[in-house]
Design a protein around this nucleic acid. Structure first.
Lengths: 231, 231
DNA sequence: CGTTTGATCTCGCAT
DNA sequence: ATGCGAGGTCAAACG
């Protein structure tokens, strides 16, 4: 990884065009050749960047460039899309390279798949007498998160989101429409389950006869045997 | 901006839990207090981070930590959500600070608003005799990108995307459903206009009687008077 | 302030 | 490869 702090201007031409006026920024060149341009604010997202696979080359500045104060030009081209990033450097304040080695990677916990697993194990949270048919029930247009049956034996399709917005309701609606055409399943009722449900999503769901259920991840994890065994 | 290259492990607890095993990484502390943890690959996205507003404090390692080889502990807490990022440092290989000043910011060209402006000016691209009623026509559930009339005087609702996928078709469908209930507008036909349209989105649109139109941004910009005057 | 929507979204998984 | 869904989405625009 090469770290350069430099006074520079940057131009990107690819999926769109973008320009960064001259200023002092951090230029990050990673081992895979990718380049990130970061300013001193706006965390997370670089001002500009080039994703791998890409190649960095330095171009000799011509007299016009030199007159404009440009001492060095980096040209980064994407190998597949031919997107271009051109960094015109006026002054280098830091230039250091370190070998970091490969990273073991991030371990996550608490994402949608965890919610799905917990709700499948605690399907009675949806109501007395509910039982699980299967997770990831396949339909022609994709898998329904959970298929269950209620106390009366009617089919229940459950869509699970961490954050429930309008898209999730649309998705569940398409599944329900399709599943209700299947005489082996119909009638199928829908349940939209999420840790948080946006008002507009709740409205749309109600309008379509879909029940909304709020999930409490911490409480559900607390009920989980495999988790509680760890303590 | 402070740049630190260090052998460290990282733990995040907030909207989810995440852990990074010990390895050498770049730690980036920005002027606003935000922190980014980058590895030497996977451009763009940090392995872990904390967004502003947040506060960084150093915690004195206890004997257990010291025995484990930890020489320094950073604790970063989000001011509002109380999310926590804990960085346990084993060895510092680089530690340098530079004042970058504020960045003038990125200038973009070619995003959705540009497409909308150009299509509004060149509405006849949709067909002979089309004319613009207005951009951002308000409905009860939000603004339709462009409202136009065709040669026969029938209303046309246009949804514009850079990349047209199924969500855009759903969105337009909701608008059409609503607008067709309005006797002043009905009947309203839909046009889904994008630089690129995914096959599944095209299928769904066709199924709902919505016309798909591919937009050529460069050609449209070439036709644009205000742009050509610049050259 | 909350809420919505776009993004050079990125990223991962399944087909 | 391509499509699809999720993201600690982020971040800007709008009410």
């Amino acid at each position: 990884m090469r770290l350069v702090i430099a006074k520079c201007s940057v131009d990107y031409a690819g999926r769109l065009s973008a320009h960064l006026p001259i200023a002092t920024r951090l230029l990050l060149v990673k081992a895979d050749g990718s380049v990130l341009v970061h300013s001193d604010s706006l965390s997370y997202k670089p001002l500009n960047w080039m994703s791998p696979p890409c190649a960095l080359s330095t171009v000799e500045p011509d007299q016009d460039h030199l007159d404009a104060g440009i001492t060095e030009i980096w040209k980064v081209v994407q190998a597949k899309t031919a997107d271009q990033l051109v960094i015109s450097i006026h002054e280098i304040l830091l230039d250091t390279t370190h070998d970091l080695g490969i990273d073991p990677g991030l371990q996550k916990d608490g994402v949608e798949s965890d919610l799905q697993k917990l709700l499948a194990e605690q399907i009675e949270l949806l109501g007395e007498g509910f039982h699980l048919v299967r997770r990831e029930h396949m339909t022609a247009i994709g898998p329904v998160d959970i298929l269950a049956k209620d106390a009366a034996g009617a089919s229940v399709a459950v869509e699970i989101k961490r954050r429930g917005d309008i898209d999730g309701v649309e998705q569940l609606t398409r599944y329900l429409e399709l599943m209700n055409r299947d005489p082996h399943l119909a009638p199928v009722v829908g349940v939209f389950a999420a840790q948080e449900i946006k008002p507009q999503a709740r409205m749309l769901a109600q309008d379509r006869g879909i029940r909304c259920v709020l999930l409490d991840y911490d409480a559900m994890r607390g009920m989980d045997d495999s988790h509680s065994r760890l303590f």
